[in-house]
């Protein structure tokens, strides 16, 4: 089957507009790479295997967080506690390693810890019918506070490092390196594929969209809205917990004051990926591409030796552009129409 017939099939199933919307993050990434390719310095330094390995590794934390956040945002919610939960879980990882636990136990318990925070978020939001913004804003402070308390307000450096955790984000020290990429990147890619299928094609995924699109309708259609919301926030928390493990691996220490403002980067990735903050729209591949695109921009700016503030401005512009396309497209179409009708 040729690529074009494959494309046409997707268009028929999705409708042409949805199809254009779905590929928009990919087009955005393509444009960024194209612009980079036009610059001689970037051409030689950016487009290198070792550089891509670095970018991918840098993407992992935001991308894993974005998978959880996509669930929440598509369901019409928001989770501002993501950054704090990542910091908390990096401390939890460090503490568990200090206690001498093995890889599986560390990973499982840390993810569980993140999941518990999410469970609390979802529970409070549904039980007291509170705004997710407020509840998770509160939780952002609570989780940050707990992580500092747990870590005695300083970084936690396990005396006996656990190599399997450290190599998640850096495989250069591993004696057996068959893989060109560290384990964390593969884990993130695998989870992205899994979550993309879960959100797009499982009944649970359809319910997430239905709840975000219109909660009342979802209730009318027999969907257990509260139960599903709790599951969504708990799952998101678990993803933030996993991102916390990755955060530990990156610094090889638990740091209670790390990842401040990370939730906003994660939300930006999800929004660049085509999600709507009013719910009912978004996709996992889009969010992951959004995270990757932000890492590319940061990396490219670094190579060009642009100051930090330039990076911040560029990423800010990209966020507004990504969301603004929705509003700009009809405007451009109208302009063209007006021209053609006046001719």
């Amino acid at each position: 089957m040729s690529l074009s017939t494959l494309f046409n099939r997707r268009i028929n199933r999705l409708g042409s507009r949805d199809f254009l919307k779905a590929i928009r993050p990919f087009v955005g990434l393509f444009v960024v790479l194209l612009l980079f390719a036009m610059d001689a310095e970037l051409r030689s330094l950016f487009f290198k295997g070792s550089n891509f390995k670095m970018i991918l590794t840098q993407t992992v934390i935001v991308a894993i967080g974005a998978m959880g956040m996509t669930l929440v945002i598509v369901s019409g919610g928001i989770d501002l506690s993501a950054g704090s939960v990542v910091a908390l879980c990096s401390v939890v990882t460090a503490k568990l390693i200090e206690q001498g636990h093995g890889f599986a136990v560390v990973l499982l318990l840390t993810v569980l810890a993140g999941g518990l925070v999410g469970l609390a978020n979802g529970g409070i939001i549904t039980a007291f019918r509170m705004m997710p913004f407020i509840v998770t804003l509160g939780m952002m402070g609570i989780a940050r506070g707990i992580s500092k308390w747990l870590a005695n307000n300083q970084t936690v450096n396990p005396e006996q490092p656990l190599e399997s955790v450290n190599s998640l984000m850096d495989n250069s020290q591993s004696p057996l390196t068959f893989s060109p990429l560290p384990d964390g990147v593969w884990l993130a890619l695998g989870l992205a594929v899994l979550m993309a299928v879960v959100l797009r094609s499982t009944v649970f995924g359809r319910y997430v969209f239905a709840i975000g699109s219109n909660e009342d309708t979802a209730r009318l259609c027999g969907i257990r809205v509260n139960f599903n919301k709790v599951v969504i926030y708990a799952l998101a928390g678990a993803f933030f917990g996993l991102a916390g493990v990755m955060q530990f691996s990156r610094l090889t220490q638990g740091d209670p004051s790390v990842a401040i403002g990370l939730e906003l980067q994660i939300i930006a990735a999800v929004v660049i990926g085509g999600a709507s903050l009013s719910g009912g729209a978004g996709s996992i591949p889009g969010s992951v591409i959004g995270a990757f695109m932000m890492a590319c921009l940061a990396n490219g700016s670094g190579i060009k030796d642009w100051p930090n503030y330039m990076q911040e401005i560029i990423i800010g512009v990209v966020i507004i552009l990504a969301v603004g396309m929705d509003k700009v497209e009809p405007f451009i179409q109208r302009l063209f129409k007006r021209q053609s009708s006046s001719n």
């Binding site: 949805d18 969209f209 699109s213 979802a218």
Partner: peptide
């Protein structure tokens, strides 16, 4: 307000 998921497709609404 309650009956339909307005931004979702006909197919999603019919089969939900």
């Amino acid at each position: 307000e309650e009956g339909l998921l307005l931004n979702r497709s006909i197919a999603d609404n019919l089969t939900l």
